[in-house]
């Protein structure tokens, strides 16, 4: 109200005030956007560096792994579980009503060859490494893996069955280079 009265009385001055308001806002906006853009390199520098990313493939020779044996390999500084599953373990993983699972996924969707189960050995709850790689480890009620931190239990397909974890053990990208060699990543 006051400004319209003012611009009526002093037209030129009113226009000047509007222009200054615009310039003030525009300067503020450019300054804010500029600061945000300048901050980006600082923030993004904390993401994985090129040398960290360059180490993101691992090749594994499967020939020495016996049926029933589980080995752990390191990929991107994380443990990867490679399990040479027995007939019983494959059957147990298949004979599950997928609908009943917390994170529904068929066993066939988690493997390329049924005898080889390959997954990241990190509990999806808070990142501990589950037990079960050695025959003497506790493996939980479903004979898969058991996380000692907060008691999550995984079946022989690495699917979450009990405990606080929200999801199945992750299956990384991998490819069979030959019948007995895989490349993870």
């Amino acid at each position: 109200m006051a400004s319209s009265a003012q611009s009526g009385a002093h037209g030129a001055q009113g226009a000047g005030v509007n222009r200054r308001d615009f310039l003030y806002l525009a300067t503020g906006a450019v300054g804010a956007i500029g600061t945000a853009i300048a901050a980006w390199p600082f923030i993004y520098s904390m993401n994985p560096a090129a040398d960290v990313l360059a180490l993101s493939t691992t090749e594994v020779d499967l020939a020495p792994v016996q049926t029933g044996q589980r080995i752990t390999v390191k990929w991107r500084s994380q443990p990867v579980f490679v399990a040479h599953r027995t007939e019983d373990e494959i059957k147990a993983a298949d004979d599950v009503n997928v609908e009943e699972l917390r994170d529904p996924q068929a066993d066939s969707a988690r493997v390329k060859k049924p005898e080889w189960l390959i997954m990241v050995g990190i509990c999806t709850h808070l990142g501990c490494v589950p037990l079960g790689q050695r025959p003497t480890d506790p493996r939980g009620d479903w004979k898969g893996w058991f996380c000692p931190c907060h008691g999550s239990q995984y079946d022989t397909s690495g699917r979450i069955r009990k405990g606080p974890a929200p999801a199945n053990l992750a299956v990384p990208q991998y490819a069979f280079l030959t019948d007995t060699t895989i490349r993870i990543g």
């Binding site: 994985p48 991107r76 500084s77």
Partner: peptide, 11 residues
Amino acid sequence: WLWGGFAVDNP
């Protein structure tokens, strides 16, 4: 981003 990698490590 917090880790600077895929696990807690040197970064």
